[in-house]
Nucleic acid binder design. Structure first.
Lengths: 204, 204
DNA sequence: GAGAATACATACTAGCCGGTATGTAACCTC
DNA sequence: GAGGTTACATACCGGCTAGTATGTATTCTC
């Protein structure tokens, strides 16, 4: 009896399972055996698709984590009013925040804190994700300043760094306290900050 | 020849070395052998003072990390103008932020992201540190509202959660990008937010 | 100063983990 | 359909790690 082979699917299943395993345990404590057990793939197949654990990790960052982050912010990139768009993204993200996400934290932040300081390959790839996100917000703000939906005296780069940092930080603190409420409170503070970026006297 | 024994000192040296090892590698990847090598203490001595690695980790959190955090925020607890005091703490913290701190990140945040979701003992202890910090800021804000140095319509708990979250988050993003500048930009955003909490028309 | 408790030191073990060597069956090319 | 390449499968290894068993010298108690 012939067994069908689907190399692309096998590879995809491996990086998706690895993403979850890394999300649960971090990269260094992630167990290849767990991933193999979870996917019913053998070690030979894993090492056919990836040179080593680190390369698997890089693939997870590039092929799962990166789109995961981009998808959540793409609406801000093209929005006419970036503040409205950002507030909407915050609401969306809070709605999709499951108990598991509070328990395990943001996959992006987790990996940054674990690996950025000790592995250049991770640092480069994670920094690319984070800085593209930051730049997307800064660009959106500048566009908002040009069309009058954002106050002109705000420093777009500084605000973007603050927005990204506070989102990840508030998620992290919610994880530390294992409490959704902390996330709500933090995000309400961020909403306050975003509102303060609107131009004064914009109404009537 | 008699060798002096100083059990308290031995214990102290162990938890301080463990603090650094955990800061560098995280708790789970922290190597007891490294700590023993660093301190010239033997495994027998280590296991005389601590039942296992986890108990050593708990001791590090309670006896090193907790005072480390408290010491950096105690001035806000008694300040008359909490916003001025908070801004000063931010400046102090940025001045003491070495390259190593950017590389390795905040020890508190690192441990929260690594352990809060998977070990109750860590979570309880880390949450205590974080929530005491948050409450200290919230209390200070309420005191500021009572004496007129903070605007009355601000939600003290929400703002405190946001302040703590954004500090840890901006440090985390600076680590992700391995770039001091990101920290400066984020903290300038936070300074802006803190200024917006002052009561309107407070001058002349 | 005897006896007990404390504070170590040394040597060892069991388990897990990433990685490799080798074999084999499916698939693609011509 | 032969030959080569791809996509797996199986079995094994060496290294590291937390933890333990056991021994011993110092210190405390009375």
């Amino acid at each position: 009896m012939s067994v069908k082979r689907q190399p692309d699917l096998t590879r995809q299943r491996l990086i998706e399972s690895a993403f979850e395993e890394i999300h649960r345990n971090g990269f260094r404590s992630a167990s290849l055996e767990s991933i193999l057990k979870d996917t019913n793939v053998t070690k030979g197949a894993l090492y056919h698709h990836f040179r080593n654990k680190t390369e698997l990790g890089y693939a997870v960052v590039e092929e799962v984590l990166k789109p995961w982050v981009e998808q959540r912010w793409k609406s801000v990139v093209t929005a006419e009013d970036p503040i409205d768009a950002a507030l909407q993204v915050l609401r969306d993200r809070m709605e999709e925040t499951t108990d598991e996400m509070i328990t395990l934290g943001c996959p992006l932040n987790n990996l940054c804190q674990e690996m950025a300081g000790i592995d250049e390959g991770f640092q480069k790839r994670l920094n690319q994700i984070v800085s593209e996100w930051r730049n997307a917000i800064a660009d959106a703000m500048r566009r908002g300043q040009a069309n009058g939906s954002v106050r002109a005296d705000a420093d777009a780069d500084g605000c973007a760094a603050f927005v990204v940092g506070s989102i990840e930080g508030c998620m992290g603190m919610a994880k530390a306290s294992q409490d959704h409420e902390i996330l709500y409170k933090g995000m309400s503070g961020l909403a306050l900050f975003l509102e303060s970026l609107r131009p004064p006297h914009s109404t009537h």
